[in-house]
Design a binder for these strands. Structure first.
Lengths: 118, 118
DNA sequence: CATAGTGATTCGGAAATCGAAGCAGGAGGT
DNA sequence: ACCTCCTGCTTCGATTTCCGAATCACTATG
């Protein structure tokens, strides 16, 4: 399988520079990645429970994502299932302003799009 | 074209809840989306210049992303090209802790993965 | 042996992405 | 008018990613 875990300092998909933030954007910009981190920040979970929490996402992709995130040292697997490392918790915490922003976004978008979807 | 812009309050790919943060994660979790916002936060750019800055990403996807982000009120197109709206600037700002985190990530990963890829 | 749980893989089909080429329109020059 | 160069943007076949049901290997329990 061709999936490689983005690493800071190594050129990644869409970035030849290898700048850490670009590697992060590459890693996070993959389907389900942020959702997985988000869910695990709520509580650790086993493979199947994690799959359930993520709207029953496909196990093949979950397996790939888990491998990537483990390789990026954001996840570990122990007796209780998958859990965030300290680095992973820090990442989710750095993402937390996004939740506040999305609230304002909702307030801005809600009234303006009341007309209907497209 | 089947692309629909995620909106807070509307169930999106990978989320039946429609919670704003899930809509945001869906929108941002698409290839090139965060990169485009990141680049435009540096300076406004026209279509082709934006494409150049994003490692010559495919024009078809750029067109789709630009449409999504415009629909989400994060982008506008004027005489100078594409630029972030206030909402878009706020989003990028809420993402800025990510840059700091990625630095620590790089420090943590660099030495630890000197052994080789995978 | 049977059952049930775990994490994880296989594989055919669907969807997203890629990328080179081209379209339509505007500005400037001759 | 015509040609050239720029713009934002579309088309379409090829490639990559993602999906999802079935399945594997392993462990534990009975």
């Amino acid at each position: 399988m061709g999936a490689s875990t983005p690493r800071p300092g190594v050129p990644v998909r869409g970035s030849e520079s290898g700048r850490p933030v670009m590697a992060a954007l590459d890693l996070l910009g993959r389907r389900w990645t942020m959702r997985i981190l988000w869910e695990l920040s709520q509580a650790p979970a086993g493979f199947r429970e994690l799959q359930r929490r993520c709207e029953r996402m496909s196990s093949s992709v979950l397996s790939t994502r888990v491998e990537e995130l483990t390789g990026a040292r954001l996840l570990t697997l122990d007796g209780d299932g998958y859990r965030l490392t300290q680095l992973g918790r820090d990442l989710v915490e750095s993402l937390s302003p996004l939740a506040a922003w999305s609230q304002r976004w909702a307030e801005e978008m809600g009234p303006a799009t009341a007309g209907g979807p497209e």
